[in-house]
């Protein structure tokens, strides 16, 4: 039987001075899939991850990995691999040495250093000093460090940050394959779009509170509702006709209408009867971005208009 490798967080709370960073978080991250941890900047994601890793002490509540606090793990790098800050490398140390000291700390054999460098595609720069690395390369080095102990649990804070498009493609596939092997994979991001096609499950937080703990498919279905989109050159007439029949109509792009509250056949017949030409009628599919905006509305720490007030 595989070891229990779920991450359990219960009633976790943390404040810094007058600011409450994490306000009673409770969730479980299951093994075998990629779980996305999303929220606006300042929502408390990194603080939560640091508390899971025993780096910051919570005011109350607890965080367990496989039923145990991180601080009680023996050779923790072989149980949990984490990337918290890609900049956390000494600029004067070679990439291979950066991994070597970590390996020594937990009695991990030296050959793992070679293997993970190979896995993240840094073999050719292994003997170069990390000070000359681009953010993308540091990100890869950070991921290599997380993989060093071949851990069953991976916790990556903003792993996509700074990667080039090829790197983004690579990490998506890579994380999915790690989850498919039965590992627990938790990745955070402040951009929901980054998690589209990668995460199966989502934990959405805002201002330190859990806003949603949901399956990606379910979330999309809820946000999409029973809506229909279509294109027409005669927007105002089409809106009048449809609204008269009780539909909620919105024009969110030039020449494009989103209709809620009427079945597709009814929309087609109403527009045909009124002699309004239209095309590209389809069921509306919300993007994760939309779903996220809906969830985090009002939970954003810094919004555009408060920023404007501060600069005026």
């Amino acid at each position: 039987m595989p070891p229990d490798t779920a991450i359990e967080v219960s009633a976790l709370r943390k404040h810094y001075g007058p600011t409450t960073a994490v306000d009673g978080l409770t969730f479980t991250v299951a093994p075998g899939k990629v779980t996305g941890f999303v929220g606006p900047n300042g929502a408390g994601k990194s603080t939560t991850l640091r508390m899971i890793l025993g780096l910051d002490a919570p005011d109350s509540g607890k965080a367990l990995i496989g039923g145990r606090p991180y601080a009680t793990l023996r050779d923790p790098l072989t149980v949990v691999g984490a990337l918290l800050d890609a900049e956390a490398v000494h600029p004067g140390r070679r990439a291979v040495d950066h991994l070597l000291w970590m390996a020594h700390y937990n009695g991990i054999p030296r050959r793992r250093v070679t293997e993970v460098l190979e896995q993240v595609g840094l073999t050719s720069v292994a003997k170069k000093r990390a000070g000359g690395f681009s953010l993308g390369m540091r990100q890869r080095l950070g991921i290599a460090a997380a993989l060093l102990g071949d851990p069953q649990v991976l916790i990556l804070d903003e792993p996509v940050n700074g990667l080039d498009p090829e790197g983004i493609q690579w990490i998506r596939g890579f994380l999915k394959s790690l989850a498919a092997e039965g590992r627990t994979v938790l990745i955070s991001s402040h951009l929901m779009g980054e998690l589209q096609d990668t995460a199966e499950h989502l934990l959405v937080i805002g201002r330190g509170r859990l806003l949603a703990d949901t399956d990606v498919g379910e979330l999309l279905a809820t946000t999409s509702g029973n809506r229909i989109t279509l294109r027409t050159a005669r927007l105002p007439e089409a809106m009048t006709v449809l609204a008269r029949e009780g539909a909620t109509v919105s024009a969110n792009a030039p020449g494009t209408l989103t209709v809620a509250g009427l079945p597709g056949e009814r929309v087609v017949s109403l527009l045909t009867e009124a002699g309004i030409p239209f095309s590209e009628i389809s069921a509306h599919r919300a993007s994760l971005e939309e779903a996220y905006l809906e969830l985090t509305r009002g939970a954003t720490e810094f919004t555009a208009d408060t920023a404007a007030l501060e600069t005026s």
């Binding site: 780096l55 793990l73 790098l77 984490a82 800050d85 956390a88």
Partner: peptide, 18 residues
């Protein structure tokens, strides 16, 4: 102090929480 700028201490204490 090389642990703190940048924050290598995150890695060090992840490797050894004691």
């Amino acid at each position: 102090t090389s642990e703190y700028h940048p924050r290598l201490i995150l890695l060090t204490l992840s490797a050894s929480p004691r």
